[in-house]
Design a binder for these strands. Structure first.
Lengths: 400, 400
DNA sequence: CTTTATTTTATCACTTTAGTTAATTTAATT
DNA sequence: AATTAAATTAACTAAAGTGATAAAATAAAG
């Protein structure tokens, strides 16, 4: 536990003020004092420091309520810039954003497979250099690089422990980037970064117990409690892809039977579709190894009833998985992401109906479940949010 | 967020010192200063206050290491007493303990069924009065009453929202007891209180991410993270009894199929045993409606191979449920409690083997799993721990 | 339409709290 | 007697709290 000191007290109060401006800005000094119970002089002097640090600025004057007009304070979103890297199994997506998460610049690289550790790390450096070159006038205001890496990540050590699709182990990503660039570097698992993206930029703003579920080739979840990521004892909290929900189900890549992933992932949907087609149904789809979940979605879009049924059924299974999640973590909000979630139109009604049917209590039944609206760069924005967390934890005082 | 103030800073430091003495006592002022990074004068003055409040006392002098002998400090376990009530579905168990959780006095009441709300609340008051009368010389040093109530509990409001076995709703337990006794009153769900008991008095001491799983008539779990209970958004975090693990399993009382509870609870074990016996097996057990899980345990104890097989199988299913728990919450430790856990001798090897087989990573595979050693009054001790939490949060300054 | 009173925002000067530094006392060991 | 460790005392300082004051607006009165 951190001891109490004058510095700690000041830092805490500064953080409270900064967070207040972030969440409720534009806001006046007087209003901050009222809502935080800090005294006006304290607010004044700490705001002065925040303005000196450039992270906060005075904006327009507000409306008077029968006295002197308040000077409104806002975060200076243009003060600093951040780089976010979504390091996926097949491609790398890089964004440069301001503090509001507005994407200023974007780059994408396809990964040559197979790839060596050196090649992969070089690609990260190359991409970062490239986006900095494209935005050279802002390079001096860049404060950090965030990396959302697929696979198992040790965020504290800054390492990618295991990237299954690339078959790479123990890559010192943070160290490598920190050696090449004079910026703060932070790395995290992609599913968890996504949860952070939702709390900073998505529909999870203000939610204090959010789960972001990613359903694609695999299934994973990130858990954010009170704005902080919950990682568990050994970085595997939220590994719901391998939650057993069917004792006698299909065999999973992990060796067990009936993992959630064997039922609701993209490949699982394709496989189930193929299987059912063998039994003979009326559909526009063509059976075969190349059939994907996206094909099923497209067929549903063009009115194929069988495809719609498949997706509704998938929604039911997702709902069962989410109900298990609700009964253990009991989040206030669940946000769905990933390739499969793009078929949300067909999945969501079934998901919600299933949770409503199966959850134990009234409030559990009405747990907010929605589709992410962050778009294609969601994970890269999560990487950016890693830097924001650091910036705000340090009250805007970034020093590499 | 709580603002930083002189009071808050002092309170935090006092709490750090008190916790240090609790966990590492007997310990000297100098040692506390070293380990907490607080300065010796700060430690000295705050310890003085703690001694004035009677919660800390000086004990024997320690060994000198080449200078003045250190004065060792310890929690004064005899300074205050607490009452803990385990309000179960059929009986009430009341204990009076000192701050170390040593049981000084104990009472038990069988509940007359059916029972009305007034009768139930009266029973709680009657029991508390009785144990106070039996310990009249200590009544003045009692600081609080903790209640571990079965069913759904709103700890903040101090109410039992729903007690399924008694069919009682919205009982204002905290209010009722607070009106009758001039003590602090705290109430919590029994499974969660149990988790607290393990962190304060059991094998979970010092564990910062503990799950206490109760397997009896029903199945539930309490989650304690960094010494605090994790309740979730609507008080149902840890409701693992209704986690679906078999899509096509038996129908549960909740209406769904394949809830963990339909496989590993006491009644479920009995039912499965009956079912298998119909298929014809060699066993000393007699089929029938009156067969209980305890009978199976007794048969296993007297060498019945069939009974042992049933319990091993049950252990496998418990292991699957715990693996799901590990993949979502990723605790550092799981402690098993409740009637079924009494057959732990036969269950535990299978549980551990299953987790080892199914968990994803090496550290997840080796999650510590053990049987509770708290004995019969475990839940009542959890109720007592509720008061300890309050006492230590307030640095020993209890005021009703 | 000007003047005055009132209200709200923000700051300044002074006080108080409690941690920090450095020196001192106490009491042991070598 | 010298040294070392524990605990306390006294002076210092950081940062919040209190109360007064300045600034700038609106509302009311003449």
């Amino acid at each position: 536990m951190q001891r109490g000191s004058f510095q700690a007290m000041k830092s805490l109060n500064k953080s409270i003020i900064l967070t207040k401006i972030l969440n409720d800005g534009p806001i006046s000094r007087a209003q901050i004092a009222k809502e935080t119970k800090l005294t006006p002089p304290t607010v004044g002097s700490l705001v002065k420091e925040l303005i000196d640090q450039k992270i906060v600025k005075e904006s327009t004057q507000g409306m008077s309520k029968g006295g002197r007009k308040p000077t409104m304070l806002v975060i200076d979103h243009q003060a600093y810039y951040m780089i976010g890297i979504d390091a996926g199994p097949t491609k790398i997506d890089i964004v440069l954003t301001n503090l509001a998460g507005d994407i200023i610049s974007n780059l994408q690289y396809q990964l040559p497979l197979p790839i060596t550790e050196a090649q992969f790390l070089d690609k990260l450096i190359e991409g970062t250099e490239e986006i900095l070159k494209l935005n050279s006038e802002r390079a001096n205001d860049v404060i950090g690089i965030g990396v959302a890496m697929h696979g198992v990540v040790d965020a504290e050590a800054g390492e990618s422990l295991y990237a299954p699709n690339l078959d790479l182990h123990n890559m010192p990503i943070k160290q490598t980037l920190a050696n090449h660039f004079a910026y703060l570097v932070s790395i995290e698992n992609d599913a968890r970064a996504l949860a952070l993206a939702e709390t900073w930029f998505g529909q999870g703003k203000g939610s204090d117990r959010l789960v972001a579920v990613n359903i694609g080739t695999g299934v994973g979840a990130g858990v954010a409690i009170d704005g902080e990521l919950y990682r568990g004892e050994s970085h595997i909290a939220g590994e719901i892809g391998h939650m057993t929900i069917d004792l006698n189900g299909e065999v999973c890549s992990c060796g067990n039977r009936g993992c959630l992933q064997t039922i609701i992932s993209g490949p699982a949907i394709a496989e189930r579709t193929n299987k059912l087609m063998k039994e003979g149904v009326t559909t526009s789809l063509t059976e075969g190894d190349h059939l994907t979940a996206y094909d099923v979605y497209k067929a549903a879009e063009s009115g194929d009833q069988f495809a719609k049924m498949i997706l509704t059924e998938t929604g039911k299974y997702i709902g069962i998985g989410l109900t298990n999640l609700i009964h253990t973590l009991n989040p206030s909000q669940i946000i769905l992401n990933g390739g499969v979630a793009k078929a949300g139109k067909y999945l969501l009604p079934a998901i919600k109906a299933t949770v409503k049917e199966r959850a134990l209590t009234a409030s559990a039944k009405s747990t907010a479940i929605c589709l992410s609206d962050l778009g294609d760069h969601a994970t890269a924005l999560g990487a950016v949010a890693l830097i924001l967390v650091e910036l705000f934890a340090k009250n805007g005082e970034i020093s590499i």
